[in-house]
């Protein structure tokens, strides 16, 4: 099988890779670019563990083909912190114990970041509905919701 060459931007860096045409972007990120922070929980878009930003839009990377990434911009969990400085959401997740096992955490963080980008002051209900596509089996979501709302408040204060 002939592989396809793809040029794209991942977390601000120009990246090139070869992939099969039927390979998902999630598999490309994990297996070819060693960015294993995005997780596969279902492969069908039902759990959100593979959430990334594609041209600044929140998507499940398991529902995107690697070849679709040509000329696009991708942001993954690995690009969320700036150097040593965690994003406020990342800090608040740790502070509020918003993770137990941590497998869903990268997806939640990316999804929450997308939320706060378009709604800096969401209500609890808005957070819950926005994050309904991210499954967490450990926490009962309680502390995740608290962390997102608290991070939003901090980020508003910083503006």
């Amino acid at each position: 099988m002939t592989q396809t060459h793809v040029s794209t931007i991942v977390n601000g860096d120009a990246v090139e890779f070869l992939c099969e045409t039927d390979e998902t972007l999630l598999d490309v990120l994990r297996d070819r670019l060693t960015l294993t922070g995005s997780k596969e929980g279902c492969g069908s878009g039902d759990c959100g563990a593979c959430s990334i930003l594609l041209d600044n839009r929140l998507v499940c990377s398991c529902l995107v083909l690697g070849v679709e990434a040509q000329d696009r911009e991708i942001e993954t969990i690995e690009g969320m912190a700036s150097g040593d400085e965690l994003h406020p959401l990342q800090r608040k997740f740790i502070e509020h114990a918003a993770l137990q096992c941590g497998i869903c955490t990268p997806g939640f963080l990316i999804a929450a970041k997308a939320l706060l980008a378009q709604n800096p002051d969401p209500t609890e209900t808005e957070v819950r509905y926005w994050l309904a596509g991210n499954l967490c089996r450990c926490t009962g979501y309680d502390k995740i919701i608290t962390a997102v709302i608290d991070a939003a408040a901090e980020m508003r204060g910083n503006v």
Partner: peptide
Amino acid sequence: RPLRPDGVEKVTGSAKFGADLT
């Protein structure tokens, strides 16, 4: 309620889960 010692790994995606090793 101190911060968990493995927190940073888990919020930055660097923690290695079952499928993450090659």
